[in-house]
């Protein structure tokens, strides 16, 4: 019938115990030594797409157009005529504009990341300009370990395919999860806890408990 039958017929219990254990041990070791026999170069891979940090943001002016669309303004609309005189560390220091901004990002000031000379771009620590799309490089300047983990696929989350020979993958950039002005991951309500049979004995309310006991 099948392989095991032979063992059973012998009826010699201890012998078959030994055989069983041995065959299992051998099976296991074979499995774990199996190599990944994929020739790397020949395989075509699907792209890994990283979601863009987006273009430079536009500020809502509070006005709406006749058709109800919000009126927005580019940063340079204002900043071309106003210069940031002092290094601002918190929204509370501001007298006008960006007043409600929740800014909690270490010891940084606005100009640490925003280029005072070109408000449609960002500025790296060495003073070079970089477009918004390259925001991750800016973050990586300080957050090296995270950037390294991200590079190696162990930070930031992804969707799609683990095996990129079979399909594409989409990855987040930093700002999909972290607000650059307040990067700590926000608190949130968790998805509901398990409602196992009778788990209510411990921590859920009594009426819930009785309901499930009624059957």
């Amino acid at each position: 019938m099948r392989r095991k039958t032979a063992f059973q017929i012998t009826g010699i219990v201890s012998l078959s115990l030994l055989t069983g254990v041995l065959s299992q041990a051998i099976g296991t070791s074979q499995q774990s030594t199996e190599p990944a026999n994929k020739p790397k170069e020949a395989i075509q891979r699907f792209p890994v797409h990283t979601r863009s940090p987006g273009p430079s943001p536009a500020i809502e002016t509070g006005f709406t157009t006749g058709s109800g669309e919000p009126v927005t303004a580019d940063c340079s609309t204002c900043h071309a005529t106003r210069t940031n005189a002092v290094p601002v560390r918190s929204a509370a220091e501001l007298e006008s504009f960006h007043l409600g901004l929740n800014f909690e990002h270490g010891q940084l000031v606005c100009a640490s990341c925003h280029d005072p000379g070109n408000n449609e771009e960002l500025r790296l620590a060495d003073g070079t300009h970089t477009p918004w799309a390259n925001a991750m490089q800016l973050c990586a300047q300080c957050h090296g370990p995270q950037a390294r983990d991200y590079e190696n696929g162990s930070h930031g989350g992804m969707t799609g395919y683990w095996d990129t020979t079979l399909g594409p993958r989409t990855r987040n950039s930093c700002v999909q999860c972290h607000d650059p002005h307040s990067p700590a991951f926000p608190q949130m309500y968790p998805a509901p806890p398990p409602r196992d049979r009778h788990i209510s004995i411990r921590s859920q309310n009594a009426s819930d408990h009785n309901e499930r006991h009624s059957e």
Partner: peptide
């Protein structure tokens, strides 16, 4: 070849699969 559902759902990227 797809990622498991729990990994895709993770908002912090705490999960690594492969």
């Amino acid at each position: 070849g797809k990622l498991p559902a729990c990994l895709e759902a993770c908002p912090t990227g705490a999960r690594v699969f492969g």
